[in-house]
Amino acid sequence: MKKLKVAILGSGNIGTDLLYKVLRSSRLECSLFVGRNLSSKGMSRALSLGISVSDKGIQAIQDNPECCHIVFDCTSAMSHKIHSPILAGLGIIVIDLTPAKLGPFCIPAINLDACLGDVNVNMITCGGQASIPLAYVIGQTQQQVDYIEVVSTIASKSAGPATRLNLDEYIETTEKGVKMFSGCGKAKAILNLNPAEPCIDMQTTVYATVPKIDLPALKEGIAIMVEKIQRYVPSYNLIIPPTYENNRVIMSVRVKGMGDFLPSYAGNLDIINCAAIAVAEEFAMARIEGRQ
């Protein structure tokens, strides 16, 4: 099968982990890996894998726009705001892994097909990819939902400098996504970093205030959704099933990573990267089938 060429912009934790996942894909090929510092960990990893690299940032794509059909932007929300119009001008599709929220939001388990016509697809946040599908099921199965709250805890070591600087954007983007997909007007997102050694796995808890709870419908919907997500994030597991206690609904998932760049505790990298790969592969399929 002919592979679709993609470039990865950003050589931090997200970008480097994504590279491994592109290499594993039967539909994608990494034609360029772009950072700003040739001696960074990510860059030397890419070099050792025999990938073409550049330390020129967005300029590398501008100099050679033919190099790829899709760019994964793994930089920061602030940088993406600069990159987005440049890439649009070059006619390159962008899958945005920063919380810049410029393009429409994509959760593959919910709206993958609907995103294919867009030139900038936003992958929301790692916590959003883990929690929003659950929030969506709450919205779909319950008559009235007053409030939804999503809390993620990730290992300190899995949060690079851009993630840390983007904490506010993480929260605001995740909250927007929860509201949009669940239809609930009131939402809150919280993120904790835990430095424990050995590192903890990513964990996400979703709470909801639901006046008349239909627990059987919720449990059934969640089971189906978890299975859908497991198709692209294999170790997405429900550890607290939907439970009604102390006047709230609570459920929790744990996400282990594949251990590509960082060890398996960094499920936060995997969940957003696996989702981004699912979108890119769908683009590739659409192209082959002449849908695009």
């Binding site: 809390v151 805890t153 904790n192 970093l193 835990n194 424990a196 964990q203 808890t205 607290i240």
Partner: peptide, 17 residues
């Protein structure tokens, strides 16, 4: 023993269960 930090109150429910 699990070295939880402030803000991880959801762990309380998990551990209790």
């Amino acid at each position: 023993a699990r070295k939880v930090v402030g803000g991880q109150e959801d762990k309380i429910v998990e551990v209790a269960m």
